[in-house]
Write a protein that binds this DNA or RNA. Structure first.
Length: 307
DNA sequence: AAGTGAGACAACCGCGACTGT
DNA sequence: CACAGTCGCGGTTGTCTCACT
């Protein structure tokens, strides 16, 4: 028995939306709002569409604040920086780009940016094939980190998330985005304690962080201030990203091979030890890059995390 | 002009998380 | 606490457009 479908697939219409359907949906939402229930909405306005489909159509296409047209260089850089920092959290990345939707950003990454950064080649760099358990996105990010001059630079940033708020106050501060829809998408998910298998996409980040932690004598600070994602992106060298995105980066790549391989070595080292290490994260720090090992846990000190 | 392939964009699907009862 | 309904997300697939042969 699978989960019950959210709507009757025999009745709902699928495929591209007609202008009439768009007009109906748009007019209703502009006048009445979504009513807090997408599933019921299509019935109210006589649309033979799934509620999820209506939601998607509104968020990705009909919403008045949608920005059309090509992405700017600044947006490119921002997407890349954030992708390197947090991975394929498209909704979060999109929230940093006013008027852009997660679908937009995701499509743009998949069709354009990925090619810009990695070239036409589909397979990962040869040496990365030696880490077969890593998911593609993690490999990509590893590769990008290698292309920049400071491998795993994001792990030197104590604040990979825009801010951390205590449980019970999960909404991200307005400074991140003034757009209400985006803010809604920023609802931080609670998760007091997560344990993840070693093969999840956060593998690289955890390894990197553990490496960083070890190399700094096990000290690791996790702060709870309220600065924005700018702190993350500032950590990546904008000019280097610019090189990767808009210039021939072959020379840059060659120059960083050594760094990259060194970074991989540290990962492999950590992978060998992962069996004996318990990985954990604290509430509100959903991103794997913020995970810390027990080795560095003592540094959390005064933080009262519900573990 | 017709066929074809690639690229861009739109939409769907499945799943985990959240919320109310 | 359990359960059902709903939301939101990320991955994937489908469709359309356009350039090229």
């Amino acid at each position: 028995m699978g989960r019950a479908p959210c709507c009757d697939k025999a009745i709902v219409k699928k495929g591209p939306w007609s202008p009439e359907e768009d007009a109906k949906l748009k007019a209703y939402i502009e006048e009445n709002g979504t009513g807090g229930n997408w599933i019921a909405l299509p019935h109210k306005i006589g649309l033979k569409r799934c509620g999820k489909s209506c939601r998607l159509r509104w968020l990705n296409y009909l919403r008045p604040d949608i920005k059309r047209g090509g992405f700017t260089e600044e947006e490119d850089q921002r997407i890349c920086s954030l992708y390197i920092s947090i991975g394929s959290r498209w909704s979060i990345i999109a929230a940093q780009l006013p008027g852009r939707t997660d679908n937009d950003v995701k499509n743009y990454w998949n069709t354009k940016l990925q090619k810009k950064l990695f070239g036409k080649r589909k397979e990962p760099p040869l040496h990365l094939n030696h880490v077969p358990t890593l998911p593609a996105s993690a490999l990509e990010r590893m590769h990008l980190q290698g292309l920049l001059s400071s491998p795993f630079s994001f792990c030197s940033n104590p604040e990979p998330w825009p801010n951390h708020q205590p449980p019970g106050d999960r909404s991200i501060l307005p400074s991140i985005s003034t757009d209400s829809t985006h803010q809604a998408g920023f609802q931080m998910r609670s998760g007091i304690l997560k344990s993840e298998s070693a093969s999840t996409r956060g593998e690289v980040e955890r390894s990197a962080l553990a490496f960083h932690s070890a190399s700094t004598g096990g000290s690791l600070s996790v702060e709870t201030s309220t600065s924005s994602f700018d702190a993350v992106t500032a950590d990546l060298q904008a000019d280097e990203l610019d090189d990767l995105l808009y210039c021939n980066h072959s020379s840059s790549f060659a120059g960083h091979q050594e760094h990259e391989l060194a970074g991989l070595d540290c990962c492999r080292e950590v992978f060998r030890e992962k069996e004996s290490t318990d990985w954990w994260i604290v509430d509100g720090f959903e991103d794997e890059s913020t995970m810390v090992s027990w080795d560095s846990a003592s540094a959390l000190g005064s933080q009262e995390y519900d573990v």
